[in-house]
Design a protein around this nucleic acid. Structure first.
Lengths: 203, 203, 203, 203
DNA sequence: AATGAATGAGGGTTCATTCAT
DNA sequence: AATGAATGAACCCTCATTCAT
């Protein structure tokens, strides 16, 4: 295991300070103090305070995107399989966010108003996720699992409910355990809705 | 109808500039130029740049909260009534956001990283809405409309899906028409879920 | 007489400090201290330290250029008239430089290595003066006053001798009196080389 | 012939970079990159960025001074001999400057505002050259070649015209050929003003 | 001799805020 | 109430210099 490099220390310290103070209030001098290096050292590894933030955001987006974000319909034989894949998928992303609370918080909350480039990264990510979600709705409907729904609207609803759980339960409250259970509760609601039965809801 | 006061002009200008530039990049001098007054005038009406932003946020929170956010169970006789109340409630909030895109954007996106006090206002609002939502889940279950669900988790899911529609479809895309239809699509998904039927989902 | 404005104070202070310390070593804080204003005030009147310097250079170039730099052949009837015009012209420029030693020094010595724009202003000025000088050589030759000389080379020689007197005698030594006498000595040397004549030198 | 030492490489690289960027904008890191050595190596050979520049200036001053700067009256029998010695002298200095354009440019243009010590070297050089020139005027007058002129003023004029040719024609334009011809043109102008003669100019 | 990562003092610039008019 | 010139604290970034290897 190699010794911790200054670059590592700085990125870690940057995540911490950006998170504690917010992007604008964070001072480069705080980051370097936190990292235990001199101020000038920051600029050996990052061209600017801005770019260090962008790199954090890019890293997080790559990290999340490396998780399987799409359903594998080949392996889905029935509703239960589908439900399981959703639970797996949600759980893995919950886990990544739980493991990187600081950066996840920056990504979802701070990025839009921190920096244009960072905002673009987040925006692209959101669009990508909504697109995948919308496609899944179409695919699932074709295969007879899902009702016919407005894909554009409902994909946003799905992403939104997932995102708010991440923000409130994982990031804000700091929950790191029983994330699968959390995913199961969410998926149960997602697939069946609030009403006790189809009958009751429409009668 | 009173003449437009400087305070009004400034608040309007502030909303515009904060929205265009972001809280930190917005300059008091831009706001006053936009409002057509001298820079010093700003400080006759607001003690600080920070406080002007906070007042915008408070106003928006009041505005939203003035809409009926709670279900009126007295007037609900069946699932369809419930569904209608949800649609009405969602539509009215959609409308408020559509009418105040700038401030809504600031409230939901910028507030958390703009200023501590503003973040607290948004946080309190979110907690309030989630609380109402959770209570509704309990009430609805008691009355036999809703399945037994983890209220804390599902209330967040519900708020999240609603919020993401606001953010993406109304604020970002700027949709201002057929908001009731949007609410209907959302409520339909909310109450019945994705799966074609209770049968299919569990079989 | 209006009260001294901050702009005036600052330009004067800037000339002094740039001259004392050199462009690069000069600090904006020194200039404002010298001017008796706060640091930020500097930026009410100049967009940058660089631009303040450029404005000084531009002002000096305009100042010099406002002096009649060209001979008026209409008023020249003989060699003595010509000699007098040269003496007048040189004296007036000597005077301007003597009245603005600081800025003249900056213009001729510091500008080239201070800033690209300032260097360009000085360069353009030098080219202009050499061009006028070369044209005068041609005109004077046509009229029978001057020998046939390589105008491009000799115009540079003439500008050079004039410039070095300015730099060494007026700027460096600070001579401010009997400038006409100085000009006469110089012209005497200059014309005995320019005017058609025969004699010891070629025998 | 010894292998090129790092010191040589660095001095050559320094001349290039100082010339391209100017003294202040030149970075030690650029010089070492240009020389193909590590940054720290610079400080094995020079105590500071400043001193490297001073050494360049000192070298150039020595180089120029090694040329015969004085007239050899023993070998002057008539005006033509004198003219020839001047042409030889000017040509040799032209040649040195043409062979070292970069450093010559630094010496004459950058030194005054680059560094106090460098400015002093240039100043001393200029004073020396003007002194020699003034002495030659006196000597030449005593021997009946030159008219009686104000030695202090005219020596500066002579140095100035020579210097401006160097700056504009050799350094700025980069002329490296027919330098003797250039010297002849200059001397021709110079002596017709210096030598006792009669003619149109005074009539 | 040579390296190059690390240092940290220093200064140009911004802009929220003040206050004399 | 309104003005807008003036203020000055704050902070990012540069780069000459050092030093452990």
């Amino acid at each position: 295991m190699p010794a911790k490099t200054s670059a590592d220390q700085l990125l870690k310290a940057a995540a911490k300070v950006y998170h504690q103070r917010g992007y604008h209030a964070a001072k480069v001098s705080e980051i370097t103090r936190e990292a235990g290096v001199a101020q000038g050292t920051f600029y050996l590894y990052f061209p600017s305070k801005r770019q260090a933030f962008v790199e954090l955001m890019e890293g997080f987006a790559r990290n999340i995107s490396s998780a399987a974000l799409e359903l594998d319909w080949e392996r889905i034989r029935n509703g239960e399989d589908l439900r399981q894949q959703l639970v797996d998928l949600y759980t893995s992303i919950f886990q990544i966010c739980a493991d990187n609370r600081d950066v996840a918080d920056l990504f979802f909350n701070a990025a839009p108003s921190a920096d244009e480039r960072a905002a673009a990264i987040r925006e692209e990510f959101m669009r990508g996720v909504e697109g995948i979600s919308a496609q899944s709705l179409v695919d699932g409907a074709e295969r007879g699992y899902f009702r016919a729904l407005k894909a554009e609207t409902i994909s946003r609803a799905i992403v939104g409910m997932f995102l708010n759980i991440v923000l409130r339960t994982i990031i804000a409250e700091g929950r790191t355990f029983r994330l699968r259970e959390l995913a199961e509760d969410l998926v149960d609601f997602e697939v069946r809705g609030l009403f006790v039965s189809e009958g009751a809801a429409t009668k």
